[in-house]
Computed example of a mutant assay.
Amino acid sequence: MRTTFNRVLLGLIGLILLVVGLAVLFGSFDLQRHWDFTVPDWWPITGPKDVLLTDHNRTRFRSDDWWWPVVIAVLAILFVAALWWLLAQARAKRLRQIRIDSGDGQGALLRGRALEDVLRSESEAYQGVEWSNAVLTRHRGTPAVRLVMGLAAHATPQDVVTGLDSEVLERARTSAGLPDLPAEARLRAVRHRAARVN
């Protein structure tokens, strides 16, 4: 989710918070008088006795039963949305493109989704793997892959991991021209429902 939209939105929110913080700081410490400078007419706080909300603004809806539940609900929604957004920023970044050596000295860009689809389909084609999911991430400046696979009841995990490394990942490394492709594989047993026999 670290897109241009996120960066612009974070920048705007930061700018608004900075202006509000500076307004409170300048007004509460009376810095314009101590440092002998003037603030614009639109500046909300110009002295230590100025407040962000007047008594009228703070108390005009106090008698209405709907006011405090709405305020608390809106603040709770904003808090949950901000927390979700923060956690989304901290998640591992999915690689969108990989630069590969095309042999002509200029290189080419390979879509990360294309490599993920190939890894997923080749993993699922491997004997003993019933389903697979692949996500391409960045690991210390180089591409890395996280695989989650569902193993059939007859599959041996060691054989699957060995074959995955020597066949599937090796083909991906060779075709993409990557010197190394670190991988993390999570294996899960596929549970089948018992069939009823008459």
Score class of each variant (00 low, 15 high):
Thr4Asp: 12
Leu9Glu: 04
Gly11Arg: 02
Leu12Ala: 14
Leu12Thr: 15
Leu12Asn: 07
Leu17Val: 01
Leu18Asn: 00
Val19Ile: 10
Ala23Leu: 05
Ala23Ile: 06
Asp30Pro: 05
Asp30Phe: 06
Gln32Gly: 12
His34Glu: 15
Trp35Met: 12
Asp36Cys: 02
Val39Gln: 12
Asp41Ser: 11
Asp41Glu: 12
Trp42Phe: 15
Trp42Tyr: 10
Pro44Phe: 10
Ile45Val: 09
Thr46Met: 07
Gly47Trp: 03
Asp50Ile: 00
Leu53Trp: 15
Thr54Ile: 10
His56Asn: 14
Arg58Ser: 15
Arg60Ser: 08
Arg60Met: 15
Arg62Gly: 03
Ser63Asp: 14
Trp66Ser: 05
Trp66Phe: 11
Trp67Leu: 06
Trp68Ile: 04
Trp68Asn: 10
Trp68Gly: 03
Pro69Phe: 04
Val71Thr: 12
Val71Arg: 11
Leu75Phe: 15
Leu75Cys: 15
Ala76Asn: 03
Ile77Cys: 14
Leu78His: 10
Val80Arg: 11
Leu83Glu: 08
Leu83Met: 11
Leu86Gly: 04
Leu86Arg: 09
Ala90Glu: 11
Ala92Leu: 07
Lys93Gln: 11
Arg94Val: 15
Arg96Asn: 04
Gln97Ser: 05
Ile98Gln: 01
Gly103Cys: 13
Gly105Pro: 05
Gln106Glu: 14
Leu110Val: 01
Leu110Asp: 02
Gly112Phe: 06
Arg113Leu: 08
Ala114Glu: 08
Glu116Val: 03
Glu116Asn: 00
Arg120Trp: 00
Ala125Val: 03
Ala125Glu: 08
Tyr126Ile: 00
Gln127Lys: 06
Leu136Trp: 02
His139Gly: 03
Arg140His: 13
Arg140Pro: 02
Gly141Phe: 15
Ala144Phe: 01
Leu147Pro: 01
Leu151Glu: 05
Ala152Phe: 04
Ala152Asn: 07
His154Pro: 00
Ala155Met: 09
Val160Arg: 05
Val160Asn: 08
Val161Ile: 14
Thr162Asp: 12
Leu164Tyr: 08
Leu164Asn: 11
Glu167Cys: 00
Glu170Leu: 09
Arg173Lys: 13
Thr174Leu: 13
Thr174Phe: 10
Ser175Ile: 07
Gly177Val: 02
Leu178Asp: 04
Leu178Arg: 02
Leu178Tyr: 06
Asp180Thr: 06
Asp180Gln: 08
Leu181Pro: 01
Pro182His: 00
Glu184Ala: 06
Leu187Asn: 02
Arg188Gly: 05
Ala189Val: 02
His192Cys: 05
Arg193Cys: 00
Ala195Pro: 01
Ala195Thr: 14
Arg196Met: 12
